[in-house]
Design a protein around this nucleic acid. Structure first.
Lengths: 246, 246
DNA sequence: CGCCAATGAGAGCACTGCTCTCGGAATGGA
DNA sequence: TCCATTCCGAGAGCAGTGCTCTCATTGGCG
């Protein structure tokens, strides 16, 4: 991995780490948009120009933070799913993953704002970030797929013959998304019910993000007193509507 | 309204309007965090210090933009709901309101980022903003209330006796929220089913925000090809799960 | 040992939000 | 009409930002 363990390379690695940590600390206190390279330079007791030896620009530093945060959140979700010993208990895997994602986000509000908040105007995320960014939703799709492979199905809405009358335009892209990311293997489904599965998982992921975003960005003050309980209720509701919980 | 229509007062009103319009234009091009007071000063061909005669600080300008945008979005939602002539057609009111909200947000991405994106670090929204901010969700609650008053009910999940086993902690605050905002009058419901109604409406609002946020903040690239069709599907799914559509 | 690349420091440029002073112009009462 | 008051725009200035440049030093490899 690290071929030349010279003193200089070691120092570079340590200082890079120190810069990243300081930047993440500043992220949570000052917010992503106000991330000041000079401020982190002061934190690590260097002159601002010296930081540019380690990150060629502020955007590069942002990208590094972005990938690191995406990977941490993805690993958290994957770990929470894997922590459930009984793989057939998809309900526990579902709730556990949801709670783990929220816990991480609440503990890292600055990183959450960087990942899912207002995009920095001039900044465009490079290609390297799309793979770490999809780790959470891939976990959700996998849980739903396992549940459906084991026989679970979403509850049929009564007195409604057109419950699955969804616009056809979104089926193909979602399917392409699945195939592109190699999620087919873990999904044991026929072709006509697969897209519906993925769509519901995507909706659940959207809702998961929405409720956390509302909590962290302060849009629940006055309406929700206990965010954790409210979050659990949302997670349970999603699980019930998907047919994989209770 | 405007007691002294002197030339000076007229000029002040016109220039204030001009500053607000320029700021909104900059908002969509540069993003909320990068809103530069000097830039809008250049746009209206004034020196930066002169703008401070109209807005005492950049935060005050942000607050004015915030209230204006909240009111515009709220009026859009209310107008879309009111535009449906058949008040009993709650499905049409639901979809129409959803689409109108998305249309406005897509047309005003900068304002959306200001309203629902990463909060500006030092900035805290004053009390005047909470009332305009709740106009959209109030429309949703009203539609759901009308539908349930007319006899509609959410579909019962089969093979599940604990479908309403929601954590009790969130009931009281949601109810307090409803009473505080005077939504009781338009809701003709018994007490035990009211909180569930409001909770589902709040979830729908959360999902509505989530899907728009994902679209505008670029988290759907690669997975969703047609955002409008995907949005319609989500809106329909929410309506079905709530029991007010199809 | 000597050369070269890596590193940190400092100055400088253009930009930001914001405060201050100053002079001119509109307003309203005498 | 005259004049004091109020308002308003302009400019300078302060402290901060991202970023580029040059310069001296220092570590590592041949």
């Amino acid at each position: 991995m690290s071929p030349a363990r010279t003193a200089r390379a070691l120092a570079r690695e340590a200082i890079t780490r120190e810069i990243l940590d300081s930047a993440r600390a500043r992220l949570t206190t000052d917010g992503p948009a106000a991330l000041s390279l000079r401020a982190v330079a002061r934190d690590v007791e260097m002159v601002s120009s010296a930081v540019y030896r380690y990150f060629p620009s502020r955007d590069a530093l942002l990208t590094a933070l972005l990938i690191e945060a995406y990977d941490e959140l993805g690993a958290t979700a994957e770990g929470a799913d894997a922590a459930v010993a009984d793989r057939a208990d998809t309900a526990a895997r579902w709730i556990g993953t949801f709670r783990a994602v929220r816990t991480w986000c609440v503990a890292h509000p600055g990183e959450f704002g960087l990942l899912y908040g207002t995009p920095v105007p001039g900044y465009v995320a490079p290609r390297d970030t799309v793979d770490p960014a999809t780790r959470v939703v891939r976990v959700l799709v996998r849980i739903v797929g396992d549940a459906y492979a084991a026989g679970a199905r979403p509850p049929v809405v009564p007195a409604s013959g057109t419950a699955s009358a969804a616009p056809p335009g979104t089926v193909a892209p979602a399917l392409a998304f699945i195939k592109e990311h190699g999620l087919m293997a873990s999904l044991d489904l026929s072709d006509d019910e697969l897209p519906e599965t993925v769509r519901r998982a995507l909706m659940a992921w959207t809702m998961l993000f929405g409720v956390i975003s509302f909590e962290l960005f302060g849009h629940q003050v006055g309406s929700v007193a206990d965010p954790a309980a409210w979050f659990d209720e949302v997670a349970l509701r999603l699980g019930v509507d998907l047919g994989i919980a209770v």
